[in-house]
Design a protein around this nucleic acid. Structure first.
Lengths: 255, 255
DNA sequence: TCCTAGTTACGTACAGCGTACGGAGTGAGC
DNA sequence: GCTCACTCCGTACGCTGTACGTAACTAGGA
């Protein structure tokens, strides 16, 4: 009896990366994954992640909408292509210094800059899978290589990696939150900021949140006056120091 | 000349919380914000955030779709209602112990448990606005109150708050990533895990990622074997210790 | 060399989305 | 009691992801 294998249309579990880009049989594809990924990234950079629709990406590369599905079985896979695409922007060639804290800081800054260039990236990050695209793996490998001088068990090194990643994602998200929000809103970013400021002021004025009022006031109140750059470095230094302490190496250099 | 004020239909900037729930004039509304928020939360808990559509929420409370817009001007505001709704679940009554690290740990665990109960919550968190709903403010106030014994400048306390929040969100996201992903996928979570495991194994097998392979192997490889609870506590302790160090108080107690 | 089977390309179609608009019914303030 | 803001909601528009069917094409096996 012939085994009734799943037909070509039936969705079979699979990762985009294990599917061959070109199947040997039919006419040669008119486009490539890289081309499609680049188009999607262009759209997301310009008009936000929500503007990345199958129709729009197809139009951007000059193909019919449904033709895209020959390259990308589901939209989520397109997102994965996008993450992988921008992951090529990492500079992983410059030699490591051997000072693990400095090297990790450099990698964290690269990740931060990547997210600043592609503000939709943090939103992808909370799907675990996206950290493991082929080019993203190169970043992880580099990160762990930078940790070579550090005497910590493997599990702890992964926790360090996670801590740094969380810190970077958290700070960039905060930094870009307003600007990214404004993209969807039917009014301007300034208006939004004014209105939210008024609301918060009103809440704090009730006296029900004395510590919060006092702390925000003491920290310099206005969200726009926060020095994200400095806060980012301080936070990262704390993270690194906490692991340095655990490895018995004392604090990391001031930098 | 009469000033052409914006008509009732024109979208005016505004926060849902400053808009009065009941306007004095017309017939009394058949529903309430709380009822609508609870319905939305029920749907999100059961079928995921993407299942929360205006139509579905309206149906759930027994109203016409467009009637919802009398209570919630935009869908994003519905999301804000949801965050506020679940924020009522925080226990902020139990007295603080006075041990700031223990108190903060308790609050972090509450936040973690809340996210576990409502797995869509982390996805909201990256819109800054959502941390500042009225009931969420109570959590922030409590957090800062717990930090009273800690001698740090206001800005640093806020950084501590951010660090803890990032850590909690990061860990819960990792913990729930697979399960939440599986909701959308056209195949089972087990199949997904198998397929992704195979892909990762293949990549590691190329020898291009020696540190990564070695580290993952050394950490106990299988994602399912990770003790998230322990990792969570360790990471949080590192965060707290780093701030304790900065305050000159040495490490926090072991707990 | 020809045949055939698998691929590529893509038009059409469907169910679902957020929400703009307009009309009918309601009840509080003048 | 008149008026007018407000509640309710049916209809409709433009958008989404993608299932399905068909036509063109080409590489592998006979």
């Amino acid at each position: 009896m012939t085994l009734m294998a799943a037909s070509g249309r039936t969705p079979r579990p699979g990762v985009i990366w294990t599917r061959p880009e070109r199947a040997g049989r039919g006419p040669r594809p008119a486009h490539s994954r890289a081309e499609i990924a680049a188009a999607a990234v262009r759209i997301a950079d310009a008009d936000g992640l929500d503007a990345v629709s199958m129709r729009r990406v197809a139009a951007e590369v000059g193909a019919g909408t449904m033709s895209l599905y020959n390259y990308v079985p589901r939209k989520e896979d397109l997102h994965e292509l996008m993450v992988d695409e921008v992951s090529t922007e990492y500079d992983l060639e410059t030699p490591l210094t051997g000072d693990w804290a400095a090297d990790v800081l450099g990698l964290a800054e690269q990740a931060r800059d990547l997210m600043r260039r592609h503000p939709w990236l943090p939103r992808m990050a909370d799907s675990t899978a996206y950290g493991f695209t082929p080019n993203a793996l190169r970043y992880l490998e580099r990160f762990l290589t930078a940790l070579d001088p550090l005497d910590l068990p493997p599990g702890t090194k992964l926790e360090l990696l996670a801590a740094v990643t969380n810190t970077v994602a958290g700070y960039v998200t905060n930094e870009l939150a307003m600007a990214e929000r404004a993209r969807t809103l039917p009014w301007s970013e300034a208006e939004e900021q004014a209105v939210r400021g008024a609301y918060l002021g009103e809440q704090l004025g009730t006296g029900k949140f004395p510590r919060l009022a006092q702390t925000l006031a003491g920290a310099g109140a206005g969200v726009e006056s926060v020095d994200y750059e400095a806060a980012f470095r301080r936070s990262l230094k704390r993270v690194l120091d906490s692991f340095a302490l655990e490895a018995g190496g004392g604090q990391t250099s001031a930098t």
